[in-house]
Design a protein around this nucleic acid. Structure first.
Length: 279
DNA sequence: ACACGCTCCTGAACGC
DNA sequence: TGCGTTCAGGAGCGTG
């Protein structure tokens, strides 16, 4: 489940292969993912140089040399693999290998997405701030525009559980179900507390733990990146050790806490938490 | 402006 | 062994 740290890791892994390099051609194997591919996608990509590859929220943005911007969202199950060993041809495409970016130097970047919640599209460079998928997205949680005051203002009138509110990309960009659960555990805040009821000290703690959990995950992802200039590999999925996520029924890892991690459903999503550590 | 539920999709896990 | 059911979830969208 790619959230901000996974998308950041994928982007960093793609940079050596794609940034500053030319796309010879694109192989598109179906008409749509979550949405149809843009009109003329294959033709519009052919021969384009990717000047810059960056991440915004959970999107990967490739700024092309003709002013277009390639926008990629991995959705739930989207993956990128790199095949750039000159001695080894890329494997035969599988059922869910929907797009290949074949670079001018022969490297192949393959997009695979079984559930097809992903998005690949092209937008105009001038639209980056206003395109419907990017407009309204909140500040980057690791950037200077995000701080405890912004978080406090964003949740001050929200009458929903803090767990649900933190999933709102308009409040802060890039958090998903996993890191919201982790950030709340690290902050000692119960997930069903109404957002507007959090006290300033709790908001400050939450702000800091959001940053820390994401930074930890990015560090783990970065250390998992191999040297893909020489070997094939899949990007962005690395060994995590979550403190509460997916640990229903297991003992809380906090020192001196022997409570059992619980799972509840909020807004249709699983929430994992420690009933003792989170108040 | 905000809250909430529905929807897309398929593989994995589970129950009988 | 096999079949059916349930679950996972990002985010746009419609509705209240």
């Amino acid at each position: 489940m790619p959230e901000l740290p996974e998308v950041e890791t994928v982007t960093r892994g793609l940079i050596p292969v794609m940034e500053g390099r030319v796309v010879d051609h694109v192989v598109q194997r179906r008409a749509n993912l979550r949405f149809p591919f843009p009109e003329g996608f294959v033709d519009r990509m052919a021969g384009r140089r990717i000047n810059q590859l960056t991440r915004r929220a959970k999107y990967i943005l490739g700024y092309l040399d003709d002013g277009q911007v390639l926008l990629v969202h991995l959705g739930m199950s989207g993956r990128m693999t790199i095949h750039n060993d000159p001695a080894v041809a890329a494997p035969e495409p599988g059922k869910h290998d929907h797009v290949d970016f074949v670079m001018a130097d022969g490297a192949v970047v393959r997009f695979n997405d079984p559930r097809r919640f992903g998005v690949i599209t092209l937008i105009d460079g001038a639209e980056v701030a206003t395109h419907k998928m990017l407009a309204g997205i909140g500040p980057e949680p690791l950037g200077n525009a995000f701080n405890a005051e912004i978080l406090a203002a964003g949740i001050a009138k929200r009458a929903s559980p803090i767990k649900t509110v933190l999933l709102d990309q308009k409040l802060v960009a890039g958090l998903g179900n996993i890191y919201v659960c982790e950030a709340l555990f690290r902050s000692g805040i119960a997930p069903d507390r109404l957002a507007r009821d959090l006290k300033p000290g709790e908001i400050d703690r939450l702000y800091r733990e959001i940053r820390l959990v994401l930074e930890d995950a990015i560090a783990a992802g970065g250390s998992s990146l191999k040297d893909y200039r020489q070997s094939d590999g899949e990007l962005g999925y690395f060994q995590h050790n979550f403190r509460v996520y997916g640990r229903e029924g297991e003992t809380c890892i906090a020192d001196g806490c022997d409570a059992t991690i619980e799972r509840i459903v909020q807004a249709g999503r699983s929430t994992f938490f420690c009933p003792t550590c989170q108040k």
